[in-house]
Simulated scan of single mutants.
Amino acid sequence: MYKMPIVSIKDRVDSLNESGKYVSVMWQQPESLVFVARGRAYRSEFHINPTDEVMVQIKGEMHLHYRTPEGKEEIAIIPEGSAIHTPAGIPHSPRFPPDAYAMILERARREGEVDIFQWYCPECDHLLHEEHFTVGNYGVDPVAQAYRNFYDNVAYRTCKGCGYVMPNALAEAEAAEQKSAGAE
Protein backbone atom coordinates (compact mmCIF):
# COMPACT_ATOMS: atom_id res chain seq x y z
CA MET A 1 0.00 0.00 0.00
CA TYR A 2 1.20 3.50 -0.83
CA LYS A 3 1.74 5.97 1.98
CA MET A 4 0.31 9.36 1.16
CA PRO A 5 0.56 11.51 4.28
CA ILE A 6 -2.06 14.12 5.00
CA VAL A 7 -0.55 16.95 7.03
CA SER A 8 -2.44 19.79 8.65
CA ILE A 9 -0.81 23.08 7.71
CA LYS A 10 -2.73 24.79 10.52
CA ASP A 11 -1.28 22.32 13.06
CA ARG A 12 2.24 23.05 11.74
CA VAL A 13 1.70 26.80 12.03
CA ASP A 14 0.33 26.38 15.57
CA SER A 15 3.29 24.18 16.50
CA LEU A 16 5.80 26.75 15.21
CA ASN A 17 3.95 29.48 17.04
CA GLU A 18 4.04 27.55 20.33
CA SER A 19 7.61 26.23 20.03
CA GLY A 20 9.27 29.40 18.73
CA LYS A 21 11.01 27.31 16.06
CA TYR A 22 11.27 28.58 12.51
CA VAL A 23 10.88 25.42 10.40
CA SER A 24 8.58 22.40 10.50
CA VAL A 25 9.33 19.77 7.85
CA MET A 26 6.12 18.21 6.56
CA TRP A 27 7.95 15.60 4.52
CA GLN A 28 11.34 15.05 2.99
CA GLN A 29 11.66 12.43 0.29
CA PRO A 30 14.34 11.92 -2.40
CA GLU A 31 12.41 14.03 -4.93
CA SER A 32 10.50 16.40 -2.65
CA LEU A 33 10.92 18.55 0.40
CA VAL A 34 8.01 20.49 1.90
CA PHE A 35 8.15 22.59 5.04
CA VAL A 36 6.34 25.41 6.78
CA ALA A 37 8.50 28.37 7.79
CA ARG A 38 7.86 31.16 10.25
CA GLY A 39 9.29 34.56 9.36
CA ARG A 40 12.61 35.66 10.84
CA ALA A 41 12.80 39.35 11.73
CA TYR A 42 16.58 39.31 11.26
CA ARG A 43 16.67 37.68 7.82
CA SER A 44 18.92 39.56 5.41
CA GLU A 45 20.95 36.99 3.52
CA PHE A 46 20.41 35.78 -0.02
CA HIS A 47 19.95 32.03 -0.46
CA ILE A 48 21.14 30.37 -3.65
CA ASN A 49 19.27 27.09 -3.91
CA PRO A 50 20.42 24.34 -6.30
CA THR A 51 16.73 23.48 -6.88
CA ASP A 52 13.62 25.35 -7.96
CA GLU A 53 11.43 26.59 -5.10
CA VAL A 54 7.74 27.29 -4.84
CA MET A 55 6.77 29.52 -1.91
CA VAL A 56 3.13 29.76 -0.83
CA GLN A 57 2.37 32.59 1.59
CA ILE A 58 -0.02 31.02 4.11
CA LYS A 59 -0.37 34.00 6.46
CA GLY A 60 0.90 37.56 6.15
CA GLU A 61 2.89 39.16 3.36
CA MET A 62 6.36 38.22 2.11
CA HIS A 63 8.84 40.62 0.57
CA LEU A 64 11.03 38.38 -1.56
CA HIS A 65 14.28 40.23 -2.15
CA TYR A 66 16.27 38.81 -5.07
CA ARG A 67 19.33 39.74 -7.10
CA THR A 68 19.14 40.07 -10.87
CA PRO A 69 21.85 38.59 -13.13
CA GLU A 70 23.38 42.10 -13.13
CA GLY A 71 23.56 42.01 -9.32
CA LYS A 72 20.79 44.55 -8.69
CA GLU A 73 18.52 43.92 -5.70
CA GLU A 74 14.79 43.81 -6.53
CA ILE A 75 11.73 42.98 -4.39
CA ALA A 76 8.67 40.88 -5.28
CA ILE A 77 5.73 41.23 -2.90
CA ILE A 78 3.80 37.99 -2.27
CA PRO A 79 0.46 38.63 -0.55
CA GLU A 80 -1.23 36.14 1.76
CA GLY A 81 -2.71 33.24 -0.21
CA SER A 82 -0.35 33.73 -3.17
CA ALA A 83 2.55 31.67 -4.51
CA ILE A 84 5.79 32.37 -6.36
CA HIS A 85 8.14 30.12 -8.32
CA THR A 86 11.83 30.87 -7.83
CA PRO A 87 14.10 29.04 -10.33
CA ALA A 88 17.27 27.34 -9.09
CA GLY A 89 20.32 29.59 -8.83
CA ILE A 90 18.54 32.91 -8.20
CA PRO A 91 19.88 34.63 -5.07
CA HIS A 92 16.74 35.30 -3.01
CA SER A 93 15.84 36.39 0.50
CA PRO A 94 12.29 35.68 1.72
CA ARG A 95 11.55 38.34 4.32
CA PHE A 96 8.40 38.24 6.40
CA PRO A 97 7.63 38.89 10.08
CA PRO A 98 7.62 36.21 12.81
CA ASP A 99 3.80 36.17 12.84
CA ALA A 100 3.67 35.28 9.11
CA TYR A 101 4.07 31.79 7.61
CA ALA A 102 5.00 30.31 4.27
CA MET A 103 4.98 26.78 2.87
CA ILE A 104 8.06 25.97 0.81
CA LEU A 105 8.18 23.20 -1.79
CA GLU A 106 11.44 22.13 -3.42
CA ARG A 107 13.38 19.06 -4.44
CA ALA A 108 15.45 17.41 -1.72
CA ARG A 109 19.16 17.90 -2.30
CA ARG A 110 21.07 15.35 -4.32
CA GLU A 111 24.52 14.20 -3.32
CA GLY A 112 27.05 16.94 -3.95
CA GLU A 113 24.53 19.79 -4.23
CA VAL A 114 25.40 22.86 -2.17
CA ASP A 115 23.24 25.65 -0.78
CA ILE A 116 24.87 29.08 -0.60
CA PHE A 117 24.00 31.92 1.77
CA GLN A 118 25.35 35.42 0.98
CA TRP A 119 25.27 38.69 2.94
CA TYR A 120 25.80 42.09 1.34
CA CYS A 121 26.82 45.35 2.99
CA PRO A 122 23.74 47.53 3.53
CA GLU A 123 25.91 50.63 3.03
CA CYS A 124 27.81 49.88 -0.22
CA ASP A 125 26.36 46.52 -1.42
CA HIS A 126 29.77 44.80 -1.30
CA LEU A 127 29.65 41.03 -0.60
CA LEU A 128 30.32 40.62 3.14
CA HIS A 129 30.35 36.84 3.53
CA GLU A 130 29.27 33.58 1.92
CA GLU A 131 28.37 30.31 3.70
CA HIS A 132 28.21 26.96 1.86
CA PHE A 133 26.11 24.08 3.20
CA THR A 134 25.45 20.55 2.06
CA VAL A 135 21.90 20.00 3.27
CA GLY A 136 21.07 16.39 4.07
CA ASN A 137 18.21 16.99 6.49
CA TYR A 138 16.32 20.26 6.29
CA GLY A 139 14.87 19.58 9.74
CA VAL A 140 18.18 20.74 11.27
CA ASP A 141 17.43 24.24 9.88
CA PRO A 142 20.54 25.10 7.84
CA VAL A 143 19.43 28.74 7.63
CA ALA A 144 19.74 29.09 11.42
CA GLN A 145 23.23 27.56 11.33
CA ALA A 146 24.32 29.88 8.52
CA TYR A 147 23.11 32.84 10.59
CA ARG A 148 24.95 31.67 13.69
CA ASN A 149 28.17 31.31 11.69
CA PHE A 150 27.76 34.79 10.19
CA TYR A 151 26.63 36.76 13.21
CA ASP A 152 29.05 35.10 15.64
CA ASN A 153 32.03 36.38 13.63
CA VAL A 154 32.57 40.13 13.54
CA ALA A 155 35.10 39.74 10.69
CA TYR A 156 32.34 38.24 8.51
CA ARG A 157 30.08 41.23 9.34
CA THR A 158 32.77 43.81 8.55
CA CYS A 159 32.70 45.19 5.01
CA LYS A 160 36.03 45.04 3.22
CA GLY A 161 34.74 47.69 0.82
CA CYS A 162 33.69 50.52 3.17
CA GLY A 163 34.48 49.28 6.71
CA TYR A 164 30.85 49.18 7.88
CA VAL A 165 30.16 46.60 10.60
CA MET A 166 26.74 45.00 10.29
CA PRO A 167 25.04 44.85 13.72
CA ASN A 168 24.36 41.44 15.23
CA ALA A 169 20.68 41.29 14.24
CA LEU A 170 20.41 37.67 15.39
CA ALA A 171 21.40 38.55 18.97
CA GLU A 172 19.06 41.56 18.88
CA ALA A 173 16.14 39.38 17.65
CA GLU A 174 16.83 36.70 20.26
CA ALA A 175 16.96 39.32 23.04
CA ALA A 176 13.67 40.84 21.84
CA GLU A 177 12.03 37.38 21.77
CA GLN A 178 13.24 36.62 25.32
CA LYS A 179 12.01 40.00 26.53
CA SER A 180 8.64 39.40 24.86
CA ALA A 181 8.40 35.89 26.35
CA GLY A 182 9.25 37.24 29.81
CA ALA A 183 6.51 39.87 29.56
CA GLU A 184 3.80 37.27 28.97
Score class of each variant (00 low, 15 high):
residue 119 W to E: 06
residue 87 P to H: 09
residue 112 G to Q: 05
residue 175 A to K: 11
residue 32 S to T: 10
residue 182 G to M: 07
residue 37 A to M: 12
residue 178 Q to G: 12
residue 72 K to F: 04
residue 143 V to Q: 07
residue 179 K to M: 08
residue 65 H to G: 10
residue 47 H to L: 11
residue 14 D to Y: 01
residue 173 A to C: 07
residue 67 R to P: 07
residue 46 F to W: 12
residue 48 I to F: 01
residue 166 M to V: 00
residue 72 K to M: 02
residue 29 Q to K: 14
residue 148 R to Q: 10
residue 135 V to N: 04
residue 132 H to C: 14
residue 130 E to N: 08
residue 81 G to K: 04
residue 113 E to L: 01
residue 136 G to F: 01
residue 177 E to C: 06
residue 88 A to L: 10
residue 48 I to E: 07
residue 18 E to K: 13
residue 88 A to S: 13
residue 88 A to P: 08
residue 171 A to C: 13
residue 121 C to E: 02
residue 168 N to Y: 01
residue 43 R to G: 10
residue 15 S to D: 03
residue 113 E to A: 02
residue 184 E to Y: 03
residue 79 P to S: 09
residue 110 R to A: 08
residue 101 Y to F: 14
residue 32 S to G: 09
residue 75 I to A: 06
residue 184 E to T: 10
residue 157 R to V: 03
residue 177 E to H: 15
residue 89 G to P: 09
residue 159 C to L: 11
residue 41 A to M: 02
residue 34 V to P: 04
residue 135 V to T: 03
residue 11 D to L: 02
residue 122 P to I: 06
residue 12 R to D: 03
residue 54 V to K: 15
residue 144 A to V: 00
residue 86 T to N: 04
residue 158 T to K: 15
residue 123 E to A: 13
residue 19 S to R: 13
residue 37 A to W: 03
residue 172 E to K: 12
residue 63 H to N: 04
residue 106 E to T: 15
residue 105 L to V: 07
